[in-house]
């Protein structure tokens, strides 16, 4: 009983941290357009101390959209591939999958992003493709290790009790592997939030834009504004994953 309560408290703690983080982030986002006095005090030499080419809310939305769409595709492909190579019919492809994922993850994400440009061109698409491609790898890898870690006894019992292979996968294997898979999604999304910021250099709209514009125009205030929003977004999303993870693993000791 005691530990059930402790787990419940853990979930609530993580959830509370996430909600506080989210509220704080939204507050900063809403306050930023009115912060000219602060930035002109901090950077008196700058004529225009507040980034105003686009609204910050729009940049955040574009950034989140890019990451969301790319990560969704990465999730579908990564989890699908991970499930395939752990089934009897796909087991033969496991080695190739592992090679691809180990090799791919040594590729720096920024280099993958750059290489997409000669192939695809500038704009949203190279960023989307780079994020989705790169995002597949940690998700696929964790799907495989999560599914492999499911106890053989639970699988044998599920078979022996009369579940169909699909029922075993859906009711036993995937829920038990879920925390590990989620950890992979978390890694993937964290990396993608960063790469999406750099994607402003290949012409896609994201929170990296104020940073790049600031770097080119020597406007440190722009850089700080962009950096705070990118960093905050990454941290808030990470807190969200933390909350989700503790909820998914509540059956554990």
């Amino acid at each position: 009983m005691m530990d059930t309560m402790a787990i419940a408290l853990g979930i609530r703690d993580a959830l509370r941290r996430f909600i506080i983080g989210l509220v704080l982030y939204l507050a900063i986002l809403l306050a930023l357009p009115y912060s000219t006095p602060i930035f002109s005090a901090l950077f008196p030499q700058l004529e225009r101390p507040l980034y105003q080419q686009q609204t910050f809310a729009k940049l955040v939305a574009a950034h989140v959209m890019l990451v969301l769409v790319a990560s969704f595709v990465a999730m579908v492909v990564g989890i699908g591939a991970g499930m395939f190579v752990t089934r009897p019919r796909g087991r033969e492809f496991r080695k190739i999958f592992e090679t691809l994922s180990a090799m791919g993850q040594t590729f720096p994400p920024v280099a993958v992003l750059a290489i997409c440009v000669p192939v695809i061109g500038f704009g949203f698409w190279p960023a989307f493709v780079a994020l989705a491609l790169y995002g597949v790898l940690p998700i696929g890898e964790n799907t495989v290790s999560g599914l492999e870690a499911v106890s053989p006894a639970a699988k044998e019992a599920a078979d022996g009790i009369g579940m169909t292979p699909i029922q075993v996968l859906r009711r036993i294997e995937l829920p038990l592997a879920a925390p590990v898979i989620l950890a992979g999604i978390r890694t993937s999304v964290t990396i993608n939030i960063g790469t999406a910021a750099i994607a402003s250099t290949v012409g896609s709209v994201s929170l990296g834009l104020p940073i790049i514009v600031g770097l080119n125009g020597n406007n440190t205030a722009y850089i700080v504004q962009g950096a705070v929003l990118v960093a905050g977004l990454a941290i808030v999303v990470d807190l969200g994953f933390e909350a989700l993870l503790s909820r998914l693993s509540r059956w554990k000791a």
Binding site: G194, T195, A197, I198, I223, A231
Partner: peptide, 20 residues
């Protein structure tokens, strides 16, 4: 862990202002 979560470009940006 929190630092690792912050994207590189943001960390560069955040370091710039205090360092300069």
């Amino acid at each position: 862990n929190i630092i690792q979560t912050v994207p590189s470009i943001a960390l560069f940006g955040l370091l710039m202002a205090p360092l300069s």
